[in-house]
Design a protein around this nucleic acid. Structure first.
Lengths: 182, 182
DNA sequence: AATAAAATATATCAATTTGATATATCATCT
DNA sequence: AGATGATATATCAAATTGATATATTTTATT
């Protein structure tokens, strides 16, 4: 699925600017499942306009800065649902943190611990934001997606907390063993 | 983190060909945290060679097809650990399936159900492959990463199974209500 | 034994996407 | 009045994806 489909899908819920789409796709409730930047969103909107899948009203009144509010057309709707008829591709998960973790035995224990603690905080924040979004949102299908994220992040948080605890226990033992040798 | 670092990291565990790296990064135990294609791996290996971070032995004996076995150099090791000293970027999760799910009320119920069932099977497969890898693998840090994937996929599988059950209950009620009207 | 299919292996390339930056206005705080 | 941050569009080099081409070796099928 490409950014064009992403934009078309988001615009099927409400008309908005490219800036708004980016906010949803990079910071908002959508951001935990799909991402996109200005560099792909604006070209995508241009292409969608060319194809007649979206139209925009150019709100450049009184010398105000241009502000293009995009909305999906009937043709766009048809195209969107044609796309959604195809099989969705597999989930993609990329974690630089997990890659780093492969080298934990080659790092200082305290450095890896910092990574763990930071990741726990990060996961907690994500979880909180997803739960908040889930409470506020009254769009039924969004609940499913948000709940998916909540379930995933809860599991991860739990896993990380347990690992941190066992990590600290091990470190204590290492320190103990070292002092035993003295 | 870019594909160069990914390759360097993988090569720090064992020498191998670009083909092997791609297998690890797209199909193997690494694939659930990072991905890469030939199109990025081969250029990355060229650059790493130019930089002196890896070397390769060109095994093209007896008119056999060329086979470049890459290994990391001391300089490469130093560079890798300099890179790992920086903060890891955030996890990235992209799910076309979840995007599709936002439109579940605009699909035929049976179509969305198919998506759910397929996703459950897919998750089960991933989980199985991660658990198998975890059993076979005796590299301690890999256990952490694999366990992370297992925890995540277990939570997702559980969530999907529950949702499917409630979905079927709801559908039954809808059918019931429809026949009540007759 | 012959042949078909699948795996191994390198390589390239157009299309897409990222990540960063430039520009300018508007809103809010000090 | 000035500073900071949010709103908003746009562009571009660099990185990555996804697909394809090529050729050999291994495995499975008939």
């Amino acid at each position: 699925m490409n950014v064009r489909t992403l934009c078309l899908g988001i615009l099927s819920f409400a008309q908005m600017t490219g800036y708004d789409i980016r906010k949803l796709a990079a910071e908002g409730n959508f951001s935990h499942f799909c991402e996109a930047n200005y560099g792909s969103i604006y070209p995508a909107l241009s292409q969608l306009t060319k194809d007649g899948f979206v139209v925009f009203t150019d709100e450049a009144l009184d010398g105000k800065p241009p502000r293009k509010i995009y909305s999906i057309t009937e043709k766009g709707h048809v195209h969107l649902f044609e796309t959604l008829d195809k099989q969705p591709g597999p989930d993609r998960f990329k974690s630089e943190f997990l890659f780093y973790s492969l080298f934990q035995d080659k790092m200082q224990a305290s450095d890896f611990r910092k990574l763990l603690v930071r990741k726990i905080a990060e996961t907690r924040d994500t979880l909180e934001s997803l739960e908040k979004a889930n409470d506020c949102c009254d769009h039924e299908p969004s609940h499913f997606a948000l709940g998916y994220g909540v379930a995933m992040n809860k599991a991860v948080l739990d896993y990380l907390k347990k690992y941190l605890a066992s990590f600290d226990t091990t470190q204590k033992q290492v320190t103990q063993n070292l002092s035993d040798k003295d």
